[in-house]
Amino acid sequence: MPDVFGNIEHISLLGYLIRTVIVGAIGFFVGRLVSKRAVNQMTTYDFALIWILGAITVSPLLDGKISFTYMLIPLFTLFLWHTIFSLISLKSRKFSFFFNGKPAILIDNGKVVLKNLKRQFFSLDLLLSELRVNNIFDVSQVKYAILEPNGHISIMKVEKENPVTPADMKLTASSTDIPLVIINEGKVIHENLAKAGVDEQWLMNNLAVQGVVDFKDVFLSTINRNKKLFVLKNG
Protein backbone atom coordinates (compact mmCIF):
# COMPACT_ATOMS: atom_id res chain seq x y z
CA MET A 1 0.00 0.00 0.00
CA PRO A 2 1.67 3.27 -1.10
CA ASP A 3 1.87 6.21 1.26
CA VAL A 4 -0.81 8.74 0.31
CA PHE A 5 -1.61 10.72 3.46
CA GLY A 6 1.71 12.27 4.51
CA ASN A 7 4.14 14.70 2.88
CA ILE A 8 5.28 12.85 -0.24
CA GLU A 9 7.94 14.36 -2.45
CA HIS A 10 7.70 11.74 -5.20
CA ILE A 11 4.22 10.23 -5.20
CA SER A 12 3.66 7.03 -7.19
CA LEU A 13 0.99 6.66 -9.87
CA LEU A 14 -1.05 4.34 -7.63
CA GLY A 15 -0.69 6.75 -4.71
CA TYR A 16 -1.85 9.62 -6.93
CA LEU A 17 -4.85 7.53 -8.06
CA ILE A 18 -5.79 6.78 -4.44
CA ARG A 19 -5.46 10.47 -3.55
CA THR A 20 -7.75 11.32 -6.46
CA VAL A 21 -10.43 8.92 -5.20
CA ILE A 22 -10.17 10.32 -1.65
CA VAL A 23 -10.34 13.93 -2.90
CA GLY A 24 -13.38 13.00 -4.99
CA ALA A 25 -15.10 11.59 -1.90
CA ILE A 26 -14.22 14.68 0.14
CA GLY A 27 -15.51 16.90 -2.67
CA PHE A 28 -18.80 14.99 -2.65
CA PHE A 29 -19.25 15.54 1.09
CA VAL A 30 -18.26 19.19 0.71
CA GLY A 31 -21.08 19.58 -1.81
CA ARG A 32 -23.55 17.84 0.49
CA LEU A 33 -22.58 19.80 3.60
CA VAL A 34 -22.55 23.29 2.06
CA SER A 35 -26.04 24.74 2.49
CA LYS A 36 -28.34 24.68 -0.54
CA ARG A 37 -28.63 28.45 -0.18
CA ALA A 38 -24.92 28.78 -0.91
CA VAL A 39 -25.35 26.82 -4.16
CA ASN A 40 -28.73 28.03 -5.44
CA GLN A 41 -28.70 31.61 -4.16
CA MET A 42 -25.02 32.41 -4.19
CA THR A 43 -24.02 35.68 -2.53
CA THR A 44 -20.57 37.21 -2.90
CA TYR A 45 -19.44 35.54 0.31
CA ASP A 46 -20.84 32.17 -0.77
CA PHE A 47 -19.00 32.42 -4.08
CA ALA A 48 -15.72 33.19 -2.32
CA LEU A 49 -16.27 30.36 0.17
CA ILE A 50 -16.98 27.72 -2.48
CA TRP A 51 -14.01 28.89 -4.57
CA ILE A 52 -11.67 28.61 -1.56
CA LEU A 53 -13.11 25.23 -0.52
CA GLY A 54 -12.54 23.91 -4.03
CA ALA A 55 -8.93 25.12 -4.07
CA ILE A 56 -8.22 23.59 -0.64
CA THR A 57 -9.87 20.27 -1.52
CA VAL A 58 -7.76 19.68 -4.65
CA SER A 59 -4.50 20.91 -3.10
CA PRO A 60 -3.24 17.36 -2.25
CA LEU A 61 -3.52 16.52 -5.95
CA LEU A 62 -1.59 19.58 -7.08
CA ASP A 63 1.29 19.06 -4.65
CA GLY A 64 2.24 15.69 -3.16
CA LYS A 65 3.96 17.46 -0.26
CA ILE A 66 0.59 18.69 1.02
CA SER A 67 -0.78 16.15 3.48
CA PHE A 68 -4.49 15.50 4.00
CA THR A 69 -4.12 16.78 7.57
CA TYR A 70 -3.09 20.21 6.30
CA MET A 71 -6.06 20.13 3.92
CA LEU A 72 -8.73 18.95 6.37
CA ILE A 73 -7.97 21.47 9.14
CA PRO A 74 -8.65 24.63 7.05
CA LEU A 75 -11.55 22.83 5.34
CA PHE A 76 -13.40 22.18 8.60
CA THR A 77 -12.42 25.62 9.92
CA LEU A 78 -14.12 27.27 6.95
CA PHE A 79 -17.19 25.05 7.41
CA LEU A 80 -17.42 26.11 11.05
CA TRP A 81 -16.88 29.75 10.10
CA HIS A 82 -19.60 29.60 7.42
CA THR A 83 -22.06 27.90 9.80
CA ILE A 84 -21.49 30.44 12.58
CA PHE A 85 -21.87 33.45 10.30
CA SER A 86 -24.98 31.94 8.67
CA LEU A 87 -26.59 31.45 12.08
CA ILE A 88 -25.73 35.02 13.11
CA SER A 89 -27.18 36.28 9.83
CA LEU A 90 -30.46 34.52 10.64
CA LYS A 91 -30.63 36.24 14.02
CA SER A 92 -29.43 39.73 13.04
CA ARG A 93 -30.86 41.58 10.05
CA LYS A 94 -28.12 44.24 10.21
CA PHE A 95 -25.41 41.60 10.20
CA SER A 96 -27.13 39.82 7.31
CA PHE A 97 -27.13 43.05 5.26
CA PHE A 98 -23.45 43.61 6.07
CA PHE A 99 -22.49 40.03 5.33
CA ASN A 100 -24.70 39.23 2.32
CA GLY A 101 -25.44 42.70 0.99
CA LYS A 102 -28.67 44.66 0.55
CA PRO A 103 -31.16 44.57 -2.32
CA ALA A 104 -30.72 47.57 -4.65
CA ILE A 105 -33.55 49.20 -6.57
CA LEU A 106 -32.49 49.65 -10.19
CA ILE A 107 -35.84 50.79 -11.60
CA ASP A 108 -38.37 52.76 -9.57
CA ASN A 109 -41.79 53.42 -11.16
CA GLY A 110 -40.43 53.17 -14.70
CA LYS A 111 -37.35 55.31 -14.03
CA VAL A 112 -33.82 53.92 -13.95
CA VAL A 113 -32.01 54.72 -10.69
CA LEU A 114 -28.61 55.62 -12.13
CA LYS A 115 -26.85 56.09 -8.79
CA ASN A 116 -27.71 52.50 -7.78
CA LEU A 117 -26.52 51.21 -11.15
CA LYS A 118 -23.16 52.87 -10.56
CA ARG A 119 -22.90 51.63 -6.97
CA GLN A 120 -23.53 48.05 -8.10
CA PHE A 121 -21.24 48.37 -11.17
CA PHE A 122 -24.27 47.40 -13.25
CA SER A 123 -24.35 48.82 -16.78
CA LEU A 124 -27.53 50.06 -18.44
CA ASP A 125 -26.99 47.62 -21.32
CA LEU A 126 -26.88 44.71 -18.86
CA LEU A 127 -30.06 45.92 -17.16
CA LEU A 128 -31.88 46.19 -20.49
CA SER A 129 -30.63 42.72 -21.38
CA GLU A 130 -32.07 41.32 -18.15
CA LEU A 131 -35.41 42.98 -18.93
CA ARG A 132 -35.47 41.46 -22.42
CA VAL A 133 -34.82 38.01 -20.96
CA ASN A 134 -38.02 38.58 -18.96
CA ASN A 135 -39.86 39.59 -22.16
CA ILE A 136 -39.86 43.29 -21.26
CA PHE A 137 -38.72 45.70 -23.99
CA ASP A 138 -39.83 49.00 -22.49
CA VAL A 139 -38.56 50.33 -19.14
CA SER A 140 -41.89 52.11 -18.60
CA GLN A 141 -43.54 48.68 -18.23
CA VAL A 142 -41.55 48.09 -15.03
CA LYS A 143 -42.72 49.34 -11.64
CA TYR A 144 -39.73 47.97 -9.72
CA ALA A 145 -36.56 46.13 -10.70
CA ILE A 146 -34.49 45.03 -7.70
CA LEU A 147 -30.99 43.58 -7.76
CA GLU A 148 -30.98 40.90 -5.05
CA PRO A 149 -27.90 39.99 -2.95
CA ASN A 150 -27.56 36.72 -4.88
CA GLY A 151 -27.25 38.59 -8.20
CA HIS A 152 -30.74 37.84 -9.49
CA ILE A 153 -33.07 40.63 -10.58
CA SER A 154 -36.65 40.69 -9.27
CA ILE A 155 -39.07 42.50 -11.58
CA MET A 156 -42.55 43.85 -10.84
CA LYS A 157 -44.49 45.17 -13.82
CA VAL A 158 -46.86 48.10 -13.63
CA GLU A 159 -50.42 46.99 -12.93
CA LYS A 160 -51.76 47.47 -16.47
CA GLU A 161 -49.03 45.19 -17.87
CA ASN A 162 -49.87 42.23 -15.63
CA PRO A 163 -51.78 39.36 -17.27
CA VAL A 164 -55.39 38.80 -16.24
CA THR A 165 -55.79 36.03 -13.67
CA PRO A 166 -58.87 33.93 -12.77
CA ALA A 167 -59.06 35.92 -9.51
CA ASP A 168 -59.38 39.17 -11.51
CA MET A 169 -62.30 37.68 -13.44
CA LYS A 170 -63.81 36.20 -10.26
CA LEU A 171 -63.50 32.71 -11.74
CA THR A 172 -62.73 29.47 -9.92
CA ALA A 173 -59.52 27.91 -11.19
CA SER A 174 -59.07 24.15 -11.14
CA SER A 175 -56.24 22.95 -8.95
CA THR A 176 -53.11 21.59 -10.57
CA ASP A 177 -50.86 18.84 -9.29
CA ILE A 178 -47.49 17.53 -10.35
CA PRO A 179 -47.96 14.27 -12.32
CA LEU A 180 -46.43 11.19 -10.73
CA VAL A 181 -43.74 9.28 -12.60
CA ILE A 182 -44.81 5.63 -12.64
CA ILE A 183 -42.37 4.27 -15.25
CA ASN A 184 -38.81 5.53 -15.56
CA GLU A 185 -36.66 3.97 -18.29
CA GLY A 186 -38.64 0.75 -18.28
CA LYS A 187 -38.81 0.37 -14.50
CA VAL A 188 -42.15 0.60 -12.67
CA ILE A 189 -42.17 2.83 -9.59
CA HIS A 190 -44.60 0.93 -7.35
CA GLU A 191 -44.55 3.61 -4.65
CA ASN A 192 -46.05 6.14 -7.06
CA LEU A 193 -48.56 3.58 -8.36
CA ALA A 194 -49.88 3.27 -4.81
CA LYS A 195 -50.03 7.07 -4.43
CA ALA A 196 -52.05 7.30 -7.63
CA GLY A 197 -54.47 4.62 -6.39
CA VAL A 198 -53.83 2.17 -9.22
CA ASP A 199 -52.05 -1.17 -9.49
CA GLU A 200 -49.72 -2.81 -11.97
CA GLN A 201 -52.58 -4.62 -13.74
CA TRP A 202 -54.39 -1.32 -14.31
CA LEU A 203 -51.19 0.14 -15.70
CA MET A 204 -50.63 -2.80 -18.02
CA ASN A 205 -54.19 -2.62 -19.34
CA ASN A 206 -53.90 1.09 -20.09
CA LEU A 207 -50.50 0.65 -21.72
CA ALA A 208 -51.96 -2.08 -23.94
CA VAL A 209 -54.50 0.44 -25.23
CA GLN A 210 -51.55 2.51 -26.48
CA GLY A 211 -49.87 -0.49 -28.07
CA VAL A 212 -47.37 -1.23 -25.30
CA VAL A 213 -46.92 -4.86 -24.29
CA ASP A 214 -43.87 -4.59 -22.05
CA PHE A 215 -42.86 -2.04 -19.42
CA LYS A 216 -39.34 -2.07 -20.87
CA ASP A 217 -40.72 -0.48 -24.06
CA VAL A 218 -41.63 2.67 -22.08
CA PHE A 219 -39.02 5.38 -21.51
CA LEU A 220 -41.28 7.54 -19.34
CA SER A 221 -44.85 7.33 -18.12
CA THR A 222 -46.69 9.71 -15.79
CA ILE A 223 -50.17 9.83 -14.31
CA ASN A 224 -52.11 12.90 -13.15
CA ARG A 225 -54.76 13.33 -10.47
CA ASN A 226 -57.50 12.36 -12.96
CA LYS A 227 -55.68 9.10 -13.72
CA LYS A 228 -54.78 10.29 -17.20
CA LEU A 229 -51.73 8.44 -18.47
CA PHE A 230 -48.90 9.99 -20.44
CA VAL A 231 -46.60 7.51 -22.22
CA LEU A 232 -43.30 8.16 -23.98
CA LYS A 233 -42.02 5.04 -25.73
CA ASN A 234 -38.39 4.08 -26.26
CA GLY A 235 -36.85 4.97 -29.58
Score class of each variant (00 low, 15 high):
Leu193Gln: 02
Val39Ile: 15
Gly101Phe: 01
Val30Trp: 05
Met204Val: 01
Asn234Gln: 15
Leu229Trp: 12
Asn224Gly: 11
Leu17Arg: 10
Tyr144Trp: 14
Gly101Ser: 03
Leu106Ser: 05
Pro179Lys: 15
Val113Thr: 06
Val212Gln: 08
Phe47Pro: 08
Asp177Pro: 00
Asp177Glu: 14
Leu53Glu: 06
Ile136Pro: 01
Asp63Ser: 11
Thr43Gln: 05
Lys157Cys: 09
Gly15Ser: 08
Val209Ala: 05
Asn206Gly: 04
Trp202Ala: 09
Val39Trp: 11
Val188Ile: 14
Thr69Asp: 14
Arg37Gln: 11
Asp63Gln: 09
Asp63Thr: 07
Asn40Asp: 13
Phe47Thr: 11
Glu200Asp: 10
Pro179Tyr: 12
Leu127Thr: 01
Phe5Tyr: 13
Thr83Ile: 12
Phe5Asp: 08
Ala55Gln: 08
Ala104Arg: 05
Asn234Lys: 15
His82Ser: 10
Ala208Asn: 10
Glu159His: 08
Asn40Trp: 09
Leu90Val: 04
Val58Leu: 11
Gly186Phe: 00
Ile136Asn: 01
Arg119Ala: 09
Lys160Phe: 05
Val142Leu: 07
Phe98Ser: 12
Leu72Met: 15
Ala55Ile: 12
Glu159Ala: 13
Asp214Cys: 11
Glu200Gln: 12
Leu72Thr: 13
Thr57Asp: 06
Thr44Trp: 03
Gly27Thr: 06
Ile84Gln: 02
Ser12Leu: 00
Phe219Asn: 08
Ser67Asn: 11
Asn234Ile: 12
Asp217Pro: 00
Ser154Glu: 03
Lys170His: 12
Phe28Asn: 07
Ile11Gln: 10
Leu14Ile: 07
Val218Cys: 02
Val198Trp: 02
Ile52Asn: 02
Glu130Lys: 10
Lys157Leu: 14
Ser129Trp: 06
Ser174Phe: 10
Leu13Glu: 04
Lys233His: 10
Asp3Lys: 08
Asn135Ser: 10
Arg225Pro: 01
Gly31Thr: 05
His82Ile: 01
Ile146Asn: 04
Ile107Glu: 07
Ile52Gln: 03
Gly6Glu: 13
Val212Asp: 02
Phe121Asp: 05
Asp46Ala: 14
Ser123Ala: 04
Ser12Thr: 11
His82Lys: 07
Ser221Trp: 09
Phe230Pro: 04
Ser96Lys: 11
Pro163Ser: 06
Met71Val: 15
Pro103Tyr: 02
Asn162Ile: 01
Leu106Glu: 07
Ile11Met: 12
Arg37Ala: 08
Ile73Phe: 13
Leu114Ser: 06
Phe68Ile: 07
Leu193Glu: 03
Ile22Asp: 01
Ser123Leu: 07
Leu147Glu: 07
Ser174Trp: 02
Asn116Ile: 01
Lys102Cys: 04
Ile183Gln: 12
Leu126Asp: 08
Lys118Cys: 00
Ile223Glu: 14
Lys157Gln: 13
Pro149Cys: 02
Ser89Thr: 00
Gly235Tyr: 10
Leu180Asn: 07
Gln120Met: 13
Ser175Glu: 11
Phe47Trp: 13
Leu203Gln: 05
Pro74Arg: 09
Gly54Ile: 03
Gly197Lys: 09
Pro163Gly: 04
Ile153Trp: 03
Pro103Arg: 02
Asn40Tyr: 12
Leu127Met: 02
Leu87Gly: 00
Arg93Cys: 04
